[in-house]
Design a protein around this nucleic acid. Structure first.
Length: 459
RNA sequence: GGCCUCAUCGUCUAACGGCUAGGACGGCGCCCUUUCACGGCGCAAAUCGGGGUUCGAUUCCCCGUGAGGUCACCA
C-alpha cells in the first residue's frame, strides 16, 4: 500500500505546538514508509478563517522543514462537496431539515413573546445525515479497538447548506478523494471518529487507518492551550531563538521513543527511526527546560558563521564582534535570545571599557589588600608585556599560571589573590569568562590598558 | 454528568512474564575554577490502590481511584 498522510490545520488561529507535532508525526510516518505527506488547509469556516493564520501556519511548517508533497485548500473543493452532499440527499442518506436556526432559537428563548411572523422568519434549513444508529468499532494503531454507540449522536448536522459543508463532512470527502491512507491526529479527535465513519458509510468511502496521538499537556496536566496561558505559538519560540532542529527533536521524543537510548535526532534520522508502534499512549507534559537543553545541543552543532548570524538577528550587535565570542556563547546560551542578552551582560566587558570599583578590586577579607593587589597586578603586567601580540588563552594561561601557583605555595591569598584582581581588572564584573580568555579576546594592548586603569585606582 | 482514553523517578521515557527497575532533562553533592559557564564524577528520585492468573508480575485480567479528552449549524 502506498501510504499517504496529511496535516489538516484550520486557519482560525496561530500555528500551534500541537499542530506542529501532529504534522511532524504524519511527515515522519510518510517518509519512513516512502509515502506522501500532504498539507490541507481546512478553511470551511468562512467566518473564522483568516489568511494571516494560513500564512503563519505555512511558514511555520516550512520553518520546521516539513515539506509537503501535495497542497490543498479545502475551500477550493466546494463544488465537489456540494456534489456529494446532493448525492447523499438524492439517495435518501441525508436530508434537509427545517428548523430554528441555532443562534436565533437561542434569541427566541430570551424573548419568548415574539409574534408568529417573526418566529416563522427564524426558520432555517440544515442538512443532517440519516444515522443508522449502530455500534461502531474502529481500530486505532496506537490504542487498539475503540467502540462507540452512535445512536446517541442522532441525525447530526453535516452542512449548513448545500454549499456550506461542516468539518466532518469535508474531512471525509477530502480524505477519500485525496486517497489518504492514514489519519494521524490528536487524541482529542477520537470522539469525532465514529461520526466520520458514519459519513464514510453513506458515501461508500474506504476507512483509513487511524492513529490518535497523545496530547501535549501543560504543567497542570491539561491540554496545552493559549486560553490556559501556555505559550503555544511556534513562531513565538522561533522569535526567541529556538532552532527547528530542536523543535522536531523535542516534539518527536515527547510521545515517542526510538527503543534505544539515543536522545538527539536530526529530521532525517527521525524519519529513519520512526514507527507508530513506539508512540506513547498517555499524554506528555511540556517541559521547557528539556526543550532548552535540546536546543542548546543543536546550537552547539551549528557552524560558527551561522551561529553568529542568528545571534546578530536577535538585535543590532556587530556581526564581527559576535564572531569573536561564538565559542563562549555556545557554551553558555540555550537560545539565541539568551546569547544576544549575554553580549550585554556577562560578556559586556569585551565590548566596552569596564567601570572599576576599588572595593571590588581589592575584595577579600580580612585586611586591606590594596597593597598585595597592587603588587600582583604589577607582576602580572610584566608577564603580559612579554606575551606575543596574538597570544591565545592557552598562551596566557601558561605564562601567568606559574606565578599564580607560586602565590598559592606561599599561602596568603593563594591563586585567588592574583587571579581575582586580574579578572576583575579586565572585566569589572562579578561574573565573566576566565581571565585568560579575556586576555586573548581583548588583545595585549587593551589588556595592559585595563590593568593600568586598575593600578591607577590603587594609587 | 454520559461516552471515550490513559496510568513507571518532579518531567520525557526503557525494561520477550524472570534485573540491584535503565537512560535523559531537572535537582543535589564533589572535582575542575577563589567569578560565571562548560566539563568530569557521584547521589537522591518511580512501577496509583485492591483483588486475581502464575513458580514468578512494571508487564496479563477484573474492580476501584486518579488524570485527561469529548459531548456545536468550530475545526
Amino acid at each position: 500500500m502506498n501510504v499517504k498522510t496529511r496535516i489538516a490545520p484550520s486557519p482560525t488561529g496561530r500555528f500551534h505546538i500541537g499542530t506542529a507535532r501532529t504534522a511532524l508525526f504524519n511527515y515522519l510516518y510518510a517518509k519512513k514508509t516512502g509515502g506522501c505527506f500532504c498539507i490541507r488547509i481546512e478553511d470551511t469556516d468562512k467566518e473564522r478563517s483568516k489568511v494571516e493564520y494560513e500564512t503563519e501556519i505555512l511558514e511555520g511548517l516550512a520553518w520546521l522543514g516539513l515539506e509537503a508533497d501535495e497542497f490543498v485548500r479545502q475551500s477550493e473543493r466546494a463544488p465537489r462537496h456540494a456534489e456529494l452532499l446532493q448525492r447523499l440527499i438524492d439517495e435518501g442518506k441525508a436530508y434537509i431539515s427545517d428548523e430554528l436556526s441555532h443562534e436565533r432559537a437561542f434569541d427566541t428563548i430570551d424573548r419568548p413573546r415574539r409574534d408568529m411572523n417573526k418566529v416563522m422568519n427564524l426558520r432555517t434549513q440544515v442538512i443532517r445525515l440519516k444515522n443508522p444508529g449502530k455500534e461502531i468499532t474502529f481500530r486505532d494503531e496506537i490504542r487498539g479497538d475503540i467502540t462507540f454507540d452512535t445512536t446517541e449522536l442522532g441525525d447530526f448536522v453535516i452542512a449548513r447548506s448545500i454549499s456550506d459543508p461542516l468539518y466532518h463532512f469535508a474531512v471525509v470527502v477530502d480524505d477519500m478523494d485525496m486517497g489518504i491512507t492514514h489519519v494521524i491526529r490528536g487524541e482529542d479527535h477520537i470522539s469525532n471518529t465514529p461520526r466520520q465513519i458514519l459519513i464514510q458509510g453513506a458515501l461508500g468511502a474506504p476507512r483509513p487507518i487511524y492513529a490518535h496521538l497523545p496530547l501535549i499537556l501543560n504543567e497542570k496536566r491539561a491540554k496545552m492551550s493559549k486560553r490556559s496561558g501556555d505559550t503555544v505559538a511556534i513562531m513565538d519560540y522561533r522569535a526567541e531563538g529556538l532552532l527547528p532542529e530542536a523543535f522536531n527533536n523535542y516534539l518527536a521524543l515527547l510521545g515517542w521513543n526510538p527503543g534505544d537510548e539515543r536522545e538527539y535526532f536530526t529530521l532525517p534520522e527521525l524519519c529513519e527511526a520512526f514507527s507508530l508502534e513506539r508512540v506513547q499512549r498517555s499524554g506528555g507534559v511540556w517541559n521547557r527546560e528539556k526543550l532548552l537543553s535540546v536546543n542548546q545541543h543543536w546550537m552547539r552543532e551549528m557552524d560558527d558563521a551561522m551561529f553568529a548570524k542568528e545571534v546578530h538577528g536577535m538585535g543590532d550587535f556587530d556581526i564581527d564582534s559576535i564572531h569573536k565570542v561564538v565559542s563562549l556563547l555556545k557554551e553558555r546560551a540555550h537560545t539565541f535570545k539568551e546569547a544576544h542578552d549575554m553580549l550585554e551582560a556577562d560578556l559586556r566587558c569585551l565590548f566596552e571599557e569596564p567601570a572599576l570599583d576599588r572595593t571590588a578590586l581589592v575584595k577579600k577579607e580580612p585586611v586591606d589588600r590594596a597593597g598585595l593587589t597592587k603588587i600582583a597586578l604589577s607582576e602580572l603586567k610584566a608577564h603580559i608585556t612579554s606575551l606575543a601580540d596574538d597570544a591565545t588563552a592557552d598562551d596566557a594561561k601558561s605564562a601567568l599560571m606559574p606565578y599564580a601557583d607560586a602565590e598559592e605555595e606561599k599561602g596568603k591569598g593563594g591563586r585567588g589573590a592574583v587571579l581575582w584582581p586580574l579578572r576583575y581588572a579586565l572585566s569589572g564584573q562579578e561574573r565573566s569568562p576566565d581571565p585568560f580568555t579575556l586576555i586573548a579576546l581583548l588583545g595585549k594592548g587593551d589588556t595592559l590598558r585595563r590593568i593600568d586603569a586598575a593600578l591607577a585606582l590603587l594609587s
